[in-house]
């Protein structure tokens, strides 16, 4: 074998290998960064540097499209996050208890309603807070409830939510004699794009923002489901509950409401 150094421009093999590799790299780069992006129908080719940045995954803003269409009804402004309501202290609960004196005539002395107003005892803190915010902003409207929140501050709503969330909730009551849970609750209606109620509202799984429904009045539950289905209630984030209710039959609405409302007499 020759004693020539291997990595030297005098070694013909070495030079050729380097040149060919560089050519292949340049061809592939041109193909990937220039030719393919310029053929793409959904983005205008705006230069090599831009194309390289896009291909490399740098975050780019889309060119401004048409103006966003705003709704002609109010939707919710609430951001759900587990940290929104951190630190509900004894002080907060105590303050909430005082404020709640004005709510007892409809929502019960301990948050369990005797009429068809919803129970608030043991409701998830995020749910109470969100619903109060929505009544106040007008995303959810109700002739009875809307006037009650007009003078509540953010802090009041937090404290009321902390207080009601702290009260013991009605436990589920589904004795074997009542028969099996309705299909819509346990398995939903997958053929109609309806997930089981229990995957969001509890027992199977819980999705943040969904309400505790056990022990709620059947009249109230049915009214809410019908309101979601018709769009009269539209404060659920991005239609997550309207999408469910729209596909339900009236028999299913009744069955689900009866099931959740069931309590010992």
């Amino acid at each position: 074998m020759s004693t020539e150094p291997r990595f030297s421009h005098r070694n013909r093999w070495f030079t050729i290998a380097v040149v060919v590799t560089a050519l292949i790299a340049a061809t592939s780069a041109a193909m990937g960064f220039v030719v393919l992006p310029s053929l793409q129908t959904n983005t205008r080719f705006t230069g090599i540097w831009d194309a390289i940045c896009s291909a490399a995954g740098l975050v780019r803003a889309a060119p401004a499209g048409q103006p966003v269409v705003q709704a002609n009804y109010k939707t919710t402004d609430v951001i759900l996050s587990s940290s929104t309501l951190d630190g509900s202290s004894a002080i907060s609960i105590g303050r909430g208890a005082t404020l709640a004196m004005r709510c007892t005539m409809c929502h019960g002395t301990r948050g369990v309603s005797e009429a068809d107003s919803p129970n608030l005892a043991g409701q998830y803190i995020m749910v109470i807070f969100k619903q109060l915010q929505d009544y106040k902003s007008g995303a959810r409207t109700n002739a009875v409830m809307t006037p009650r929140v007009a003078d509540l501050t953010d802090r009041d709503m937090r404290d009321l939510a902390a207080y009601y969330a702290y009260l013991p909730r009605l436990p589920p009551y589904h004795p074997a004699t009542a028969g099996p849970a309705p299909q819509i609750v346990e398995s939903g209606a997958p053929m109609r794009n309806i997930a089981p109620c229990a995957t969001c509202h509890g027992t199977l799984y819980y999705k943040t923002g969904s309400a505790w429904l056990e022990g709620e009045s059947s009249v109230y539950l049915q009214a809410q489901l019908k309101a979601f289905a018709s769009g009269a209630r539209h404060n659920d984030i991005s239609e997550q509950m309207r999408n469910i209710a729209r596909g339900m039959s009236s028999a299913e609405i009744e069955a689900a409401a009866q099931y959740y409302a069931n309590q010992p007499q």
């Binding site: 939903g188 209606a189 997958p190 794009n193 309806i194 997930a195 089981p196 995957t199 969001c200 199977l204 799984y205 999705k207």
Partner: peptide, 10 residues
């Protein structure tokens, strides 16, 4: 995507 995945389609 979670417990209700089988019901999710458009």
């Amino acid at each position: 995507c979670g417990a209700g995945h089988e019901g999710m389609w458009g």
